[in-house]
Write a protein that binds this DNA or RNA. Structure first.
Lengths: 328, 328
DNA sequence: TTGAAAAAGAAAAACGGTTTTCTGTTTTTC
DNA sequence: GAAAAACAGAAAACCGTTTTTCTTTTTCAA
């Protein structure tokens, strides 16, 4: 390993001089500056980030804990975060919680020690836990609203669920089910939106709990739901994955979509447009959400006072064929 | 921040004693041991990993550079790596190269400084570059075969492409196109398999270059391919994403699958079973590939001589409706 | 009982950086 | 033309660990 000492020797200056020139924290004569820079070039010196961190207490890295890397929704969020972090010369370190709270806790702990701040992209921890973490290290959550020191970026969950449900009602559905995700903020809001839309129309509600908010979850619920006594004629799923899992089983069972059952998801992952029929959903600005989260975090790291520590970005309806019935 | 010094003070022992007890690198009297351990408990002391790394030169972390986090294929690979790393108490740090070689280079550089070894899950760098990197730090590639010091895990690409193509031929296809991915080992092998199968059957080959090996790539190629003068009646795509992108456009253009064109992908990502018709593909043991890659890397880190630095795992055909024609 | 070996634990050096302090030279300034 | 200020650069202290070295005590065999 080639260290700052080697550079100092090569350039015939002191170690401190090299350090200051590298970080240009002080100006030197052009002669010295040149010697140092060419020595750095020649030896291909890369400052050891660990040593740097020990010394400065900063890492210039952001940690991102993803709820589930297999959920394409988070892929876009991550790209948003990365782009913003790149722009400010921060490194992004990712970790996949695999929907397991204990694993998430471990990851946060190990990651926290290695970065300046954390983004929790879909957490399974309690609000209290997250608030406690935020006392140690700047944290921004995505899709959660823990309050306290925690900064948050979310979208208008209530509204889109309300609108999607209303859309289902508009197409003439009378028995609309909601496939609920894990009991956290996002789900509550979506569920509220769903319920309020039904209330408004005077329709009954049917809520089913997804065992997991993904393809398998949708699949596992589909059997009872589609073949049960009172099959719904409309379904709003917690997310696109669950909706798509359900649609697969529907196809296997020859339940027609949207004729027999209309299905809507939330998220608008790239695959939502690929299935047949294409999935009605809500387009969540995931890239933008990631960007804002990163921006918020880095502002906090720079010591700026965050004016709006909680931002709500707007998702929009995206009506596709899975709910559309041809005009009769 | 609470440091080892605080613990030493609290336990009324020297710093070195604390260090040695924590890493149990030396035995102490039970009295001292107890004092130190309860001090650690009480103060919730977590050793600073950076300081540790500076001192030991080890990080106990593996870096994983993913070609594209939006490609679900890699999600499974990452899970495989994580599980194996967990089992040996290693931290996994992920980074998303976004299919951009320059970005990949940067990521590798920053990550290399923070970890003990690297997994490149689908690289865009040249074999030479990768070999050069492997001289600095242990590297295992997935889906590449750079040789030199580089360890590799791949699957039987040639064979599955051959079999898929032969399958298309068996279903009566005469004009079979290959949508080629980036010009690296994986693609060459798949292409070879494709070509050899055609050769065997005495059929002509049609190779189209995907602008990018993902949904958009498949979509952008679909227009000319499906509406052009000599439309193929069978298509083997470099991967599932490209196949699915193409299928979407086909549906929009009312080209029937598999009646007009049979389509096959490679990878068997979870979504391949969800589209309509379900996609014929090759099931690549992605989880297992990740596990083996991690195992290989960690063995090398432990100084073990790697007996087989290059492993080939077997993928299997997965025939679904996108190529199947009902018996007439 | 002695005296060498072993044990227990503290002190100090090291890891690779950054930052503060210090020491000579040049420049200013009047 | 002398004192003060500014400048250039080196030296030393420090960050939080581990590891080596050193000192003091204890143990145990002869």
């Amino acid at each position: 390993m080639i260290t700052i000492k080697d550079v100092a020797r090569e350039a015939e200056v002191s170690v401190s001089t090299v350090s200051k020139i590298i970080n240009n924290t002080k100006r030197f004569s052009t002669a010295v500056e040149l010697r140092v820079k060419s020595a750095v070039e020649k030896l291909e010196f890369k400052p050891n980030p660990h040593a740097r961190s020990v010394s400065t207490g900063k890492t210039h890295a952001l940690g991102v804990v993803i709820l589930d890397i297999a959920n394409p929704y988070y892929a876009a969020v991550v790209k948003g975060i990365s782009h913003e972090a790149d722009a400010k010369n921060h490194t992004v370190l990712l970790a996949d919680a695999e929907e397991r709270p204990n694993r998430e806790r471990d990851l946060i702990e190990t990651l926290a020690a290695r970065v300046d701040g954390l983004v929790l992209a879909g957490s399974r921890l309690s609000d209290t836990d997250i608030r406690a973490l935020a006392l140690q290290k700047p944290i921004v959550t995505i899709g959660r609203f823990p309050g306290g020191q925690v900064m948050s970026v979310v979208s208008n969950e209530y509204e889109i669920a309300f609108q999607l449900t209303r859309h289902l009602i508009t197409t003439g559905r009378k028995q609309i089910a909601f496939l609920a995700g894990p009991a956290f903020w996002v789900n509550s809001e979506r569920q509220r939106g769903y319920l309020d839309a039904l209330l408004e129309a005077g329709l009954p509600s049917m809520i089913y709990q997804l065992p997991s908010p993904n393809i398998e979850g949708g699949e596992s619920l589909a059997g009872t739901l589609l073949m049960g006594a009172n099959r719904p004629d409309g379904i709003l799923a917690y997310n696109d994955l669950a909706a798509m899992g359900l649609m697969k089983v529907a196809r296997d069972l020859s339940v027609r979509i949207p004729e027999d059952v209309a299905v809507a998801g939330i998220g608008d992952i790239p695959f939502a447009a690929l299935v047949s029929p294409p999935l009605t959903t809500a387009t969540v600005p995931s890239l933008e959400i990631g960007k804002i989260a990163a921006r918020l975090l880095m502002q906090r790291l720079e010591g700026l006072t965050i004016l709006e520590p909680s931002l709500v970005l707007r998702a929009k309806l995206c009506i596709r064929a899975s709910t559309r019935i041809e005009e009769k």
